[in-house]
Structures are given as structure tokens and as C-alpha cells.
Design a protein around this nucleic acid. Sequence first.
DNA 1: CTATTTGCAAACGATTTGCAAAACA
DNA 2: TGTTTTGCAAATCGTTTGCAAATAG
Lengths: 162, 162
Amino acid sequence: MKQPCGQHSHPHRLIQQPLTELTERLRQGARKITGPRQAILDVLRRHQSPLSNKEIHAALGKESCDLATVYRNLNTLEEMRLVRRFDLGDGVARFELLAEGDDGHHHHLVCRKCSLVVEIDECFPADIEAEIGRRHGFTQVSHRLEFFGLCSRCQVAPKPVV
Amino acid sequence: MKQPCGQHSHPHRLIQQPLTELTERLRQGARKITGPRQAILDVLRRHQSPLSNKEIHAALGKESCDLATVYRNLNTLEEMRLVRRFDLGDGVARFELLAEGDDGHHHHLVCRKCSLVVEIDECFPADIEAEIGRRHGFTQVSHRLEFFGLCSRCQVAPKPVV
DNA sequence: CTATTTGCAAACGATTTGCAAAACA
DNA sequence: TGTTTTGCAAATCGTTTGCAAATAG
């Protein structure tokens, strides 16, 4: 049973997961360790904010690959729970690396102007979520929650500062 | 300044807004009262759940029009605050009619299997939302929140019952 | 009469897919 | 070697747009 969070920190996001550990997880999933795959994991490893397929593709260096391969791999990595998909409201999927055992459940505060993304610790109260489900006869209730606002920089800047 | 809600009901959603009042609001916005426009408002008026452009288009009867016209009109009606756009997580925009003066802020509980949509009164605590913004130097903070689960029907049904 | 709105077809952007060649195990 | 993965191009899906014809006020 999924346990919605109350208040907690996400230390795992700060820990640099060694690439070897990630490839090991690939291996355990009976997946092949390919150049593109390692490169994609490496890009995610060095970024804190969720990245889109296109952003990941652009960030690939020497070990680049086709954009379609990026899409395919992120779907695979999501199934394997090596990454988590986020929907920040624009029609673009974004991904974050996931630590082993972590369900990656957390939320974001996104700047409406410059799209700066901040990770948020707060979560919708688990007891109220459960009550909402109960009241309407739903089970296995989860939620999607994102915050939007104007970051400090964009409050003063006339033009978006990316 | 937008006022995030605490706990409240949404009686306006239950009131059938007369078509004449809706067209009056169009008029005040210096918009023309066209057949397609009235038909679209009429479809929304008789539905409780948020509808996609395609669903609205399909529900148009005699006064049908091009799908592109539906898209254009829903964008216009959104700007005029006659409807509110919802993002339920699949890549499809959905719309609900909005009562005058209402900001339409509320959330939904969506069945993962059959896509049944229930309107929810609970909202993310306004004080915590404000605190989240303050802590990160953001202003004008709002949120997007939707719940997902298995409705009572789909808990037993082996196949989705739409 | 004149600005707005419509229909139609083409354009778009994100994502997926078919298929044969390339690469891991 | 045999299965997985890749590149490439084409297809899909929701949505937008250009343009000339139709229409509301």
C-alpha cells in the first residue's frame, strides 16, 4: 500500500548516485548496458531539476543518440523505476533520477515566467486523501500536485531570466 | 490577489445557468453570439464533468461546427472566464462551465480505469501554500491538484465500465 | 459595412512506431 | 548467436494557424 508522505526531506536527491550503481540496477533488470543508456543516466545524475526528453538529448555529449532512443529509454527507465516522470502542466514530460527503493513522491514549485523549478517537501495530507477516497468509494488514491508562482528573480526582472 | 480556498462547497456547479445569461456574458465581452458558440455553451451547461474539445464536438447536435472552431471557442471562452480549463494528466484539455464571479478553483478525483470524474471540495491548505511561496521567495503562488484512484465500480469489474 | 468568426487544410510539437542494421550478453 | 537496442523515417495525436468565405451587429 502506497504511503502518502507527510513532512519529510528528500536526501536521496542530493546524493550523487554512482553510475556503477545505476548500471548495476539496469543489469538486475536484465537490460543491456548501452552507451546511450549510460549517457542518459549520467545526464540525469548531474541535474537536480526534472529534465525533458529534449533537454536530456541536448545534454548528451560524446555519447549522443537519436531523440527517439531518448524517448524509448526514458520509458524503459520509468518502468524499471530508475527514473520518475513528472507532469509540470505544459505538455512536456520531465524526468528525475530515482534512488533505489524511493518512490520519488514529491512536488515542485515552478516559476510561471522563467520555469525555474524548486523541489517541495510539503505534500497533501495523507489522512485527508484517504478520507476523500473513502467518501467517494475510491481505493488506491494518489494525487498529482504542483505549485506555480513567480520566483524572486522574475518578480523584479522585466524579462524572463533563464 | 487570488484567494486559495480552504474548505467550501461549489453550489454554482449545480445551478443550471440559463443560456440567456451566458450569451449575455458573451455580449458584454464584445463577442458575437454565433450558433457554434451557443451550442458549445449549451453542451457544457448540461454536463457536470469536464469535457474535452473532442467530446464537446461530438456532443454538438444540429448546431455542429468544425473541430477547430471548438478549439478556438474554448480558448476564447477561457479568456473570458466563461469556462475553466482542467488538466487531468492525460495530454487532453478539459473544460467546465464557470459561474459569473467564480474562479472555478476546485479539484477532481479521477478513476484510473474508467476515467469517471468526481468533483472534490478539499483543497490544499492555503496557509501552507503561502508558507511554501514565502520560504522560496515566490509570490502569486497557486497550485494544480488532482486525485486518482479506483472507483467503486472498477474495483470489482474486470473490464472498464464507461 | 466592417470586424469577427468559421471551415478547411496544412502546420506543429511531443511522442510513438515499423523496420532493418548494429550491438550487447 | 540470439535477443535487445538503435537510427531513421514515417505515423499519430492533440492543438494551432493561414486564408478566403460567411456572418453578426
